[in-house]
């Protein structure tokens, strides 16, 4: 299966046609989710309308963790089976994950200001997500720091695996340390502790974010494959002339 997908042309033949579908799901689910989140879902009895920040904040937090997991998984594949395409996927996912992490932090700060009365506290969840942002930036910087491109890719893949220890820490930080940030209310033992009128827009937004991530990922992998093909053609052309 892995070897089958390692061929870039075959990979794009399979995943390329998915691209318009990803965009469609992202737009439809995002549109429906936004309408439900902004108009149909109730305001919180304490927080008022600021609770609606949740519909951006929570999906972007999930995607911040999800994108890193994707990077770690593809880095492991790249290191173990030496598939160059896996490096390309991991590389493409890093800036996307950094973006989701930044969105998560900014919306979290806005929400914190309205409901906790402070932009930032040194709470375990907040701190570990900040660390995640720096891990993303470190991955991007390390990949670009070598003259030999493949050396940077391998170093970044190893760093991605080392940094993966942070993911369970982020997920369980709210349970282990029980500080200001509230514990999980959707993905938890005993089912979601959130009313369906708020759960549905949240899940729709999560689907939209996921489809958006997938679309951008496929797009940038395709761009990278095209760039390499162009470079190879230029080199071949120089050799002939």
């Amino acid at each position: 299966m892995l070897n089958f997908l390692a061929n870039p042309a075959r990979f794009m033949r399979i995943f390329g046609p998915l691209l318009p579908w990803c965009w469609a799901v992202a737009v439809l689910a995002g549109g429906a989710g936004l309408v439900l989140a902004l108009f149909a879902s109730p305001a919180d009895y304490q927080q008022g309308d600021s609770v609606r920040i949740m519909y951006i904040h929570v999906p972007s937090a999930w995607m911040a963790l999800g994108a890193y997991t994707v990077i770690a998984a593809f880095s492991a594949i790249a290191l173990v089976w030496k598939h160059p395409l896996a490096h390309v996927v991991a590389e493409a996912a890093a800036p996307l994950g950094a973006g989701f992490t930044a969105i998560c932090l900014v919306t979290g700060m806005l929400w914190g200001k309205t409901s906790w009365g402070t932009w930032w506290v040194w709470d375990a969840r907040l701190t570990s997500v900040l660390v995640l942002l720096f891990l993303y930036l470190g991955l991007i910087a390390l990949r670009g720091a070598f003259d030999d491109e493949s050396r940077g890719q391998r170093a970044a893949a190893l760093l991605a695996l080392v940094g993966f220890v942070n993911i369970p820490i982020i997920k369980f930080s709210v349970e282990w340390w029980a500080t200001l940030h509230q514990p999980a209310s959707v993905l938890r033992a005993g089912g979601p502790a959130i009313h369906p009128s708020m759960l549905w827009p949240l899940l729709l937004m999560a689907v939209a974010f996921m489809a958006y991530f997938a679309a951008l990922l496929i797009l940038s992998v395709r761009t990278e494959i095209a760039r390499r093909k162009a470079e190879a053609l230029i080199v071949a052309g120089r050799r002939q002339s």
């Binding site: 701190t127 660390v131 720096f134 891990l135 930036l137 470190g138 910087a141 390390l142 720091a145 760093l159 080392v162 940094g163 942070n166």
Partner: peptide, 11 residues
């Protein structure tokens, strides 16, 4: 670069 990689893990 080393500080960017290592400092987050030092926290």
């Amino acid at each position: 670069l080393i500080s960017l990689l290592v400092l987050p893990l030092y926290i």
